[in-house]
Amino acid sequence: MIYVVIAFLWTSILLYLILGGADFGAGILELFTSDANKTKTRKTMYRAIGPIWEANHMWLIIAIVILFVGFPSIYTTMSTFMHIPLVLMLLGIIARGTAFTFRHYDAVKDEMQKIYNPIFVYSSFVTPLFLGIIAGSTVTRSINPQANNFLDAYIFSWLNAFSFAVGLFTVAICGFLAAVFIIGQTQEQSERERFIRKAKAFNIMAVLAGAVVFGVSFIEDIPLTTWVFGSWPGVAAFILATISVIVLWSIWHKPYTNTMRFLAGFQVSMILFITTWEHYPNIVLLKNGDALSLLEEQGNAKTIDALAWALLLGSIFILPTLVYLIYSFQKNPATDKT
């Protein structure tokens, strides 16, 4: 049963990265949109993410619940030593979720929009940045449970160039996912062209940011290259991801929008696969050379069984309805008036 739980944990992280990521990306795209096009972008975006954004963010909750029920010591270690970036991320989540809803539902569209918009846009940037920083910190061996001063325990546990690079990489991926997702949602040719250009730009940025991550890993002595290229699954995933990038670039101007979405999602899953495969079952590497392992830190057996059943039963309810939700609004997008 523990493997069911781990599979759900991995899947929820992946889905959060893809769906939640596309959602954050929508805000990031807005940051990189000229003022002239902003209103239009907002409309298209709202049509695309309005009905599903709540559901997209549920994956984060699922992942957190799996962690604290199934792997309490991993949850508590992370929330102790990552306290500061987690709080910053939470502030981002609060600001973003509320600003997104407020700007749409405010009955009067006036100057207040000038307050909601920047909050939405900047928090869409900050939240995935800190998510990436936290993710990066799990492998930098910077978390030191024996630390005895404030800086070592709570600041240098996450403040380093590698984690920061991972954060920027995450931001670029979010922007990329959003642009690809929204291409299929546009209604006019010129809109479509604009989002294709954005998708291309963000794809390039993501690749560059990825290169920076590798570069920094050399400086910081993190054996990232060995992790990625040291075993055949890593290499295979890397090759598959590269092929899918090439395919994607060859179909930008064809009408295969769902294929594009699939390819973008596929690339992200390969990235997550590469980065988690090598350490599995460890998920947090600690300073003293130890690691927190999903298999060793699992909670008691009865709880894991119950958790696995709850997840399995839950997904029987959730998956079909979620697919139907996404499908319905694909076919028949939400209109802007409520």
Binding site: V65, P72, T76, T303, A306, L307, F317, I318
Partner: peptide, 15 residues
């Protein structure tokens, strides 16, 4: 967490 987590895992589904 592992003791009182059951309602939270079901709650995830409800949410």
């Amino acid at each position: 967490g592992p003791i009182f987590g059951m309602p939270f895992s079901l709650e995830g589904t409800a949410f």
